[in-house]
């Protein structure tokens, strides 16, 4: 019963597993800047990065491209690969928080901006510092609570 791992779309795309963690580090710094300066433009810029990561994939974001072109060539060790979907899911969650934060700023609710940015920052920081897997912890709970019991 390994239908999850055997699904062709899961087996299809593999990326360097170090890329998303590198991107999470930059994301955390950008979100920290947004939180400290209360500058909505910083959050909008990060929101665009999340949008690319959630739709096209984390390897196509500016941070992913920096990793691919500048960081990866300097790494010597063999690259561990991972399925693209877990980091893609994390980017979608980040996008959701960014949208809430941007909405908060536009509606002049600075608390909403701060809380949403704080959550996005917390997730990015956990990913960067602890290799936290957002999809592992959140996805099943999300499905469990959003689908009805039969």
């Amino acid at each position: 019963m390994s239908e999850v791992l055997d699904k062709p779309e899961v087996q299809k795309i593999y990326i360097d597993a170090r890329g998303p963690r590198f991107s999470a580090t930059i994301t955390a710094i950008v979100l920290a800047t947004a939180l400290v300066t209360h500058n909505v433009w910083v959050l909008i810029a990060q929101g665009l990065v999340f949008l690319i990561g959630a739709t096209r994939g984390p390897q196509f974001t500016p941070y992913g491209l920096i990793f691919k072109n500048l960081v990866k060539p300097r790494l010597k060790k063999e690259a561990p690969t991972e399925d693209v979907r877990p980091p893609k899911f994390a980017q979608a969650v980040g996008l959701l928080f960014a949208l809430v934060g941007i909405f908060g700023a536009l509606a002049d609710r600075s608390l909403i901006f701060s809380v949403a940015t704080a959550f996005a920052l917390g997730a990015a920081f956990l990913n960067a510092a602890f290799n936290y897997c957002l999809g592992c912890e959140m996805y099943l709970l999300l499905v469990r609570t959003t689908t009805r019991r039969k």
């Binding site: 390994s2 999850v4 597993a17 399925d83 877990p86 899911f89 999809g135 592992c136 996805y139 099943l140």
Partner: peptide, 13 residues
């Protein structure tokens, strides 16, 4: 128990 959005599931398997 595994899910698609989970990197360590593969290693555990």
């Amino acid at each position: 128990f595994s899910s698609a959005f989970c990197t360590p599931c593969r290693a555990t398997h």
